[in-house]
Amino acid sequence: MTAPQPHPALPPTPAGPPPGAAVPALSIRGLAKRFGTKIAVDGISLDVPAGSFYGIVGPNGAGKTTTLSMATGLLRPDFGTALVHGVDVWTNPLEAKRLMGILPDGVRLFDRLTGEQLITYAGLLRGMDREVVASRVGELLAAMDLAQDAGTLVVDYSAGMTKKIALASALIHAPRLLVLDEPFEAVDPVSASNIRSILDSYVASGGTVIVSSHVMDLVQRMCDHVAVVAGGRLLAAGTVDEVRAGASLEDRFVQLVGGRSHTEGLEWLRTS
C-alpha cells in the first residue's frame, strides 16, 4: 500500500482569524480527502470573511465540489476542520447547518414533489413555522420566476428550472452563509441576472455567499473575493483585485493553473 497521502500540515495562513478581526463566515483549515489512490483535496485552508461575495474557481476536477462538500457537512474530510461563524461543522453539525444554505452540485432532488412542495419540504425539515414557510415559498417562487410552474413536478422541470428550485430550497431559512456549487449552470441569462440581484442584496444586508464556478468573467464581475484551486490545492486567495494583479481574472487564472496549449497543429481545421 503505497497510496499517496494528503499533506494536511501545510496551512498557508496561521490558524484562526487574527485577533480583533470579525469571526469569518467560513474558516477551513487543512481540509484533505482521498478517494482510493487519488487525492482529491490536498490540504486547503481558507478564510471567507463575513459579508463577502466569495468565488471559488478552478479547472474541472480541481476539487471545488469536494472542498465545498467537506465544508458544508456533506462529505467527511480525512483531515482538517471547517468552522461556520465559529461553529465546527463536524463536531456540531446540527447547529452549523442551521447557519448555512447549501446548493450541492450533482445530487438529485426529491423530484416527484411539485416545485412548491419541494421548497416547503426544505423549510419544514428545518423546523420552520407553516405560515412563515408558506409566505416565503410564494416570494421565492416569484423571485425565481417559477410561479407559473409551482404545481409542476420537479422531475418535469428543465435543467435551469431545477437549479433555481434547488437554490430556492437553500434560501428558505434565511441562512447567514450561502454555499452554492455551480449555481448558474444551465440557467438562462434573465434568471441568472435575477438570481444575481437576489444574491447582491443578500450580501448587502450582511449575508455571505460562496459560489464555485469555472466562468471567470462571471466571478470577476460578481464577486469581491476569489480563491483559485487546482489539483486539490489552493493557488491564490484574496480580493479579486489582489488575485488578478492588473490582468483579467481569466488570464491570471490560466497563468496560475497552467496547461494552456498553443494553437499549433489542427491546420486541417482551417477552412480557408
Partner: peptide, 8 residues
C-alpha cells in the same frame, strides 16, 4: 405547466 397552491 401547472400553477401552485396545492400542497397535498
Amino acid at each position: 405547466s401547472r400553477k401552485g397552491g396545492k400542497l397535498g
